[in-house]
């Protein structure tokens, strides 16, 4: 286009109208006449058609790239987080590894939770009392009762872990604060257990002063499996602390 002279704005306009199918018969005839009398314009016309094709492809993408409206469906969050875990945290957070008491897998930890959270409560699993390990439990749930399920996972947690009290968080920020709140004084080991309802998993994080945190995840494929998974969680904890 740089080689075009001032008169070529007229050529450009005719070409654009032709490309867009907006040229009248007279305008199309004028364009045809120009192309016939100035063969060098044929290449420019072809180039303009290609430019127009690029514009048609790129402009919607540009607009969409800047889109701000819309909210991720909550049901998708678990699926996406599973993808993150499988793709980017592969090897870092085994979910099925059986470890021996001496081999708690100290690793990356504290990535924790995600979407919404339920509760936090402090309780002691009987077999852990002797070791004075503090257990804190949380359940994450941003969607709540709109899932249409009849069971109350908080109740299931209470029963399965012999948990006297359950509170519910509804924002991930609250959960993050809770997850970052570890006792600074002391010598007692602390374990946090989070049921992330959106991601479909139970996550355990243990802190012992002077050691890096440990994390282990138990998948919950269906919510009706939660009680069974919590039994496995409890068995795992007891096994590791015996």
């Amino acid at each position: 286009m740089n080689s075009m002279n001032a008169d070529d704005q007229q050529f450009f306009d005719l070409a654009m109208k032709s490309v867009a199918g907006q040229a009248s018969a007279a305008e199309q005839a004028e364009l045809d006449s120009l192309l016939a009398s100035r063969p060098e314009l044929k290449a420019e016309f072809d180039r303009l058609k290609a430019d127009a094709s690029i514009a048609k492809e790129v402009l919607p993408l540009m607009e969409a790239t800047e889109a701000q409206a819309g909210k991720l469906p909550e049901y998708a969050r678990g699926r996406l987080q599973t993808k993150v875990r499988e793709t980017l945290r592969k090897g870092q957070a085994p979910t099925t590894t059986v470890v021996t008491p001496a081999s708690w897998r100290w690793g990356w930890a504290i990535g924790l939770a995600a979407a919404a959270a339920v509760t936090v409560a402090v309780f002691l699993i009987p077999s852990l009392v002797a070791q004075k390990m503090v257990i804190q439990v949380a359940m994450l749930d941003r969607i709540g009762d709109t899932r249409g399920t009849t069971s109350n996972p908080a109740t299931i947690i209470q029963q399965a872990l012999n948990q006297p009290k359950v509170e519910t968080f509804s924002a991930s920020a609250e959960l993050r604060r809770w997850m970052g709140d570890w006792p600074t004084d002391g010598q007692q080991p602390v374990m946090k257990i989070v049921y992330d309802r959106d991601k479909g998993e139970v996550r355990i994080v243990r802190h012992i002063k002077g050691k890096p945190p440990f994390e282990k995840t138990f998948p919950v494929q269906r919510e009706q499996d939660l009680a069974a998974v919590l039994k496995a969680v409890q068995a795992f904890i007891q096994e590791q602390t015996q």
């Binding site: 993150v84 875990r85 793709t87 980017l88 924790l112 979407a115």
Partner: peptide, 8 residues
């Protein structure tokens, strides 16, 4: 690093 909060 696969941080779940960052991905959220």
């Amino acid at each position: 690093q696969g941080d779940p909060h960052a991905w959220d």
